[in-house]
Amino acid sequence: MASDKITTFTDGNFDTDVLQAATPVLVDFWAEWCGPCRALAPTMDALAGDYDGRVLIGKLNVDENPGITVKYMVRGIPTVMLFKGGEVVDQIVGVADKAEFQKVLDKHL
């Protein structure tokens, strides 16, 4: 993905990078073969720029990371979850526009 502000989350780093993070973390569950996930990518890039330093934004590939995918019972993508203090505090399922993500993020900042 284009933006270098997008972090890559995995089964291996999820505990330290997401659950123990100091800031809220937005996790985009996605896969290569998912057309709507690709449509969502530019929105994630834009949010990563706008919320730089305030919210950590990254993606988790469901193909490569079954552990976290199963743990959070993700059975549809794109699903975007907002974590705060190690807990899921909000989620958006399916493609949504930037304004909808801003509303969710601003509510929890």
Binding site: A31, M73, V74, R75, G76
Partner: peptide
Amino acid sequence: LMGHGVSTCATCDGFFF
């Protein structure tokens, strides 16, 4: 349960089943 088992896109979500 959208995204947690309810779907309208088989090509997106078939993988999970």
